[in-house]
Amino acid sequence: MSQFMETFLALRDEKRFADIIAAVPYARLMGVECGEDENGELLFWLPFAERNVGNTTLPALHGGLIGGFLENAALLHLMWNRESREAPKIVDFSLDYLRSGKATTLYAQCEITKQGKRVAHVLIEAWQEDRRKPVAVARAHFLLSTPS
């Protein structure tokens, strides 16, 4: 087991959300926060920050930043909900941008569509004020094991 997974699983068991984000340097740089919603499902949010803006004339959150936020959410969601002691590896990531990301908090929640022996499929949805009006939807494949 990697040191990263060891750290993560210890933090997960104690639900130390802020420390989980702090353990992923780029998630910390983006300013990601996470916690559980009323159903006990993992919820991610990204308070608006000037440094995350792409086009400044609109202004809109950078598309790549939205992608990074969602990919990070998918990985942590998968690690949170698995018992494996091996860190999943991303294989591919596909993202549809539906609305521009405004200068306000961006939320994301994930769903594990399929978890096989070797591969997991995760759906991710991002929204701002209204969940029925998603800013982006994405899906990712992760490799779950390395051949021995």
Binding site: S2, Q3, F4, V24, Y26, G67, N72, A87, I90
Partner: peptide
């Protein structure tokens, strides 16, 4: 900019 601090690999984002 790292995603996995144990390996030092950059974040996919």
């Amino acid at each position: 900019l790292v995603g996995n601090p144990a390996s030092g690999v950059l974040h996919g984002g």
